[in-house]
């Protein structure tokens, strides 16, 4: 069974690696946005050094981590939900439901392959460009990098679980675009894509840091910046991600089970 999912994931990786021009175009766009945001952060941190507990070098690292992880951790769309919604809308999903492999597991594996490719193809280069152009904070040695990569992997799975749940809504709402929009909006704001969550004031900041979207960018970025230390703090960060992951996957499963019953009852 595990071999099957590994094959599916490899397929997802290969499939996305064929879109070379699209990858290059994405790289370019991420880099442009990285530069624009960097200058606004520089202006902001010049006025208020140590804002949100970040030094300017930390804040700049945050900008480029955000650009690197956009597609990996799906802050602005999971990268698979359009296709899944389309299959639900057209009824092709019935075929998937009768496949021996589990629907959620299948898509999760394919998405893991996609995310891995995006990390290599679209994530690494902007990070490198940003580091050269702005000389921002780097993680503390290989252990720091490893801790960061684990947080990114977990973030990418949380993102999958979130977007999968969103896609499931298409079983009930013929046109899933409205829900996708809301999810997109929430992701954009609460992931810290626009501004780090620890700059959010008071209760809004407390709330934002407790929501699942914090697991996508804020937690990986803070792991990168070494703000959790390397002991229990780190375990707590991973625990936060794992907790949301389990909860969202379970919710996705429940929705899927209800949807399957619906499809079976309606006969497709």
């Amino acid at each position: 069974m595990l071999r099957l999912y590994a094959t599916v994931a490899a397929g997802g990786f290969r499939r996305h690696s064929t879109y070379r021009v699209a990858t290059l175009a994405g790289l370019f766009t991420n880099t442009v946005f990285g530069f624009v945001l960097s200058y606004t952060y520089i202006a902001l941190w010049a006025e208020r050094p140590a804002l949100g507990g970040y030094s300017m070098a930390d804040a700049l690292a945050y900008v480029w981590i955000g650009q690197a992880l956009i597609t990996v951790c799906g802050m602005m769309g999971g990268g698979f939900e359009d296709e899944l919604i389309e299959r639900i809308r057209t009824g092709d999903i019935a075929v998937d439901l009768y496949r021996p492999a589990d629907l959620q597991g299948w898509w999760c594996a394919a998405n893991a392959g996609r995310a891995a490719y995006q990390l290599l193809g679209r994530g690494a280069v902007p990070l490198l460009i940003g580091a050269v152009a702005f000389g921002f904070t780097l993680p503390a040695g290989p252990a720091g990098w490893a801790a960061f990569l684990l947080a990114v992997a977990l973030g990418s799975f949380v993102s999958f679980a979130l977007w999968y749940l969103v896609a499931m809504s298409a079983f009930w709402l013929l046109d899933g675009q409205g829900v996708v929009q809301v999810a997109w909006l929430a992701g954009l704001f609460f992931s810290g894509m626009l501004l780090p969550l620890n700059v959010f004031p008071g209760a809004l900041g407390e709330l934002a840091r407790a929501l699942p979207w914090a697991a996508l960018l804020q937690v990986p970025a803070d792991v990168y910046l070494g703000r959790y230390g390397d002991g229990w703090g780190l375990v707590r960060a991973y625990g936060f991600q794992l907790g949301w992951l389990a909860l969202l996957l379970a919710a996705g499963r429940a929705a899927q089970a209800a949807a399957t019953r619906k499809v079976v009852v309606q006969g497709g």
Partner: peptide
């Protein structure tokens, strides 16, 4: 769905501005 997308479209751009509000809060 249309009503939902109209509201979100407004909010997306509003959040965009919230960032600037948050900045000037600091």
């Amino acid at each position: 769905s249309f009503a939902l997308t109209l509201v979100t479209s407004f909010c997306v751009t509003f959040f965009d501005f919230v960032v600037i509000l948050l900045m000037f809060g600091q």
